[in-house]
């Protein structure tokens, strides 16, 4: 069967292998969008991969005044980990250190979810007994006195166990410039979509990895089959004319959300066709033995 091509770009017949994760959404508001974004970015900083960051997090989207519980500008943030306990810990630490501390911020639940995570519940103790609890429409909020005035924080937020991490696209091309441009387009297209984030810098990761290493204690190491500089030395997956490969990793609240995001990503990459220098769109997997979610590029394109 011939390779599937879109505008001259080869869609490699493979699949992205993804893992179940647990995830949550919170809403951060502030007097201005600028400050909501500052808080959200800080809270989602250093959250590219669970391997060493504890969590994968990112801004899902900005919210208008109409969309936020307190009528102020806001940002929706997604946070993922491998299990509920870790998610709870990351949420507490990140909201505690980056939202509670951020001028004028307030923090609300953004997900119903099948389970509840504590949001303001542990932070209320910062109030040292002066905190006040308020219940509105069945939801509890904490008002915690701080130097800037008062930090308003919902008691809990929802958690989903149906989240998926590690959806991905690999973009191969004839120049670094062309691949980076294509990935940037893809990340932008995905940013519009609900329920997903691309947690790496600018949504893009250049150091895709394989499992294991020759060095003791190193659990992952460079993905030599996709490192263009090693084409001559290893059993490479790359044609000779491919100069650079970049990856977009996608975490989503549901598998469907990842599916939709990958679809949008592929089409954004393919925009402009092979003339841009992009040659292949592929995906990373581990042979299908590790993750239950397989996103076959062919199905996604179709």
């Amino acid at each position: 069967m011939p390779d599937l091509k879109i505008k001259g770009i080869t869609i490699v017949e493979t699949f992205a292998e993804a893992f179940p994760m647990v995830g949550t959404r919170i809403i951060i508001t502030a007097p201005t969008m600028e400050w909501a974004l500052i808080s959200a970015r800080t809270m989602t900083g250093f959250a590219t991969s669970v391997i060493a960051c504890g969590a994968e997090a990112g801004i899902e989207r900005t919210l208008s005044r109409k969309e936020t519980p307190d009528g102020r500008p806001g940002v929706a943030v997604l946070l993922f980990t491998m299990d509920a306990d870790k998610l709870q810990k990351q949420l507490r630490n990140r909201v505690g250190q980056c939202v509670l501390t951020s001028p004028g911020s307030a923090c609300f639940a953004g997900l119903e979810g099948e389970k509840r995570l504590k949001l303001g519940a542990p932070l209320r103790f910062f109030g040292d007994g002066w905190q006040m609890s308020k219940v509105l429409g069945g939801k509890r909020y904490w008002r915690i006195p701080v130097m800037g005035g008062e930090f308003l924080c919902e008691d809990t937020t929802g958690m989903t166990k149906k989240a998926v991490g590690g959806g991905n696209l690999l973009v191969l091309g004839k120049s670094h410039e062309s691949v980076l441009a294509a990935c940037t387009r893809a990340v932008k297209a995905m940013a519009e979509l609900p329920g997903v984030i691309t947690p790496f810098p600018g949504g893009i990761v250049r150091s895709g990895s394989k499992v294991g290493s020759k060095y003791k204690g190193q659990i992952a190491s460079t993905n030599d089959a996709y490192s263009p500089g090693l084409k001559g030395a290893v059993n490479s997956a790359l044609p000779l004319d491919v100069e650079a490969v970049l990856e977009i990793v996608i975490d989503g609240l549901t598998a469907d959300a990842i599916h939709t995001a990958m679809h949008a990503g592929i089409h954004a990459i393919a925009k402009g066709g092979s003339r841009t220098g992009v040659t292949h769109i592929s995906a990373g997997n581990y042979g299908g033995n590790l993750g239950p979610h397989h996103f076959h590029l062919k199905e996604i394109v179709g």
Partner: peptide
């Protein structure tokens, strides 16, 4: 006198 985000939340909830 100071700002209370809670009042904004309450106002919006009441409007609902």
């Amino acid at each position: 006198v100071m700002e209370f985000d809670y009042l904004l939340l309450l106002e919006k909830w009441l409007r609902g």
